[in-house]
Amino acid sequence: MSSENPYIKYLREDRLPHIFCPGCGNGIVLNTFFKGMEKAEIGLDDVSLVSGIGCSSRIPGYVKCDSLHTTHGRPISFATGLKLANPERNVIVFSGDGDSASIGGNHLIHAARKNIDLTVICINNNIYGMTGGQISPTSPKGSFGTTAPYGSFEKSFQLSELVAASGASYVARYTTAHALMLTFAIESALKTKGFSFIEVVAQCPTYYGRKNKIKQPTDMLIWLKDNSIFKMQADNMEPKEKEGKIIIGEITKQPHEEYSEEIYKLIEKQYGDKPNVFKSAYRG
């Protein structure tokens, strides 16, 4: 048996080693993404990746496909343009809690409302890792960060529920301690026509762990596992019982009219022919 990572073929080997810290959750997410992609029978040749700013947003730079590493919080806007220029393409966004829930929150809910066929994988590590450990909109109440030296007193965003309520076709939340279930969720997301959102609650041992006294990556994974409850269970629990818990599972699954398909139908009707956006700039 070869000891080589089966997914090394998907990586830009000339860019390795990567910049992620030892014990970072990004590796698990990338592996589950490749596995989910294979299960959905999508080749990397049919994929464009888009990302914003933050640790999670560095992922596309290591993957051997077309990728757009954009500005902070905006990847979904860029992805919207890319998708509408060429709707046959699978456009997948890698983002984080700072990128999606804070600076890019508006873009996230509007893309969900439009139900445009993008898959957004949001790696939620509850902290700003790239800038050195500041609290984020998903940091649990009472957790510590460099900008919350006395503990955060803010209520945290329930990101998946927010996106589901905004109109997304598919939303699921898992943690890096649920790799197999996460793989299936990514497969479902990729197969869904419409806006799909995968929230992966992940460990950041370097900053979140250090600031919150769970320094070992393995301890963080155990903490994620122990702290998670399935949605089916959660649905029968009182709000008080669910406080501080990570609700995992499929949050919504309701495919409906997809934006790029609708807009292309409209154009075809007005134009009397197939839209000619993709590669049109190269025509004289």
Binding site: D66, T70, S77, T80, G81, L82, I263, I267, F278, A281
Partner: peptide
């Protein structure tokens, strides 16, 4: 034969046209 989209703000608007530009 082209796409018009009204975005949620101007930041998203310029983001979308950059993305579409890379879409050719």
């Amino acid at each position: 034969g082209g796409v018009f989209i009204q975005m949620e703000d101007e930041i998203a608007s310029i983001g979308a046209i950059i993305g579409a530009s890379w879409g050719g």
